[in-house]
Amino acid sequence: MPYKVDARGLSCPQPVVLAKKAVENTQEEVIEVLVDNAAARENVSRFAQSAGCVVEVTPADNDEYTVRITRGPGA
């Protein structure tokens, strides 16, 4: 089961703060961050890539996106 973070409707940089806390404080292999705007999608993706994770973005309903973060070997 992926660890899910709901970052919809939050101002910058809260989606990134929540994603970072999830990566640092949980053990799950996969973390899914739900966002509802392009800026948050880009920010969370950029953070996860710089943390050595694999990132996959899937559009969802209502202009939302799921940013799926899979831990890389070093993350």
Partner: peptide, 19 residues
Amino acid sequence: SRLCLAGGIRDLFLIGDPH
């Protein structure tokens, strides 16, 4: 570009992201 003067310094401090 989402250009933001506060965001520039904030992201450097927060996640070391120079974007």
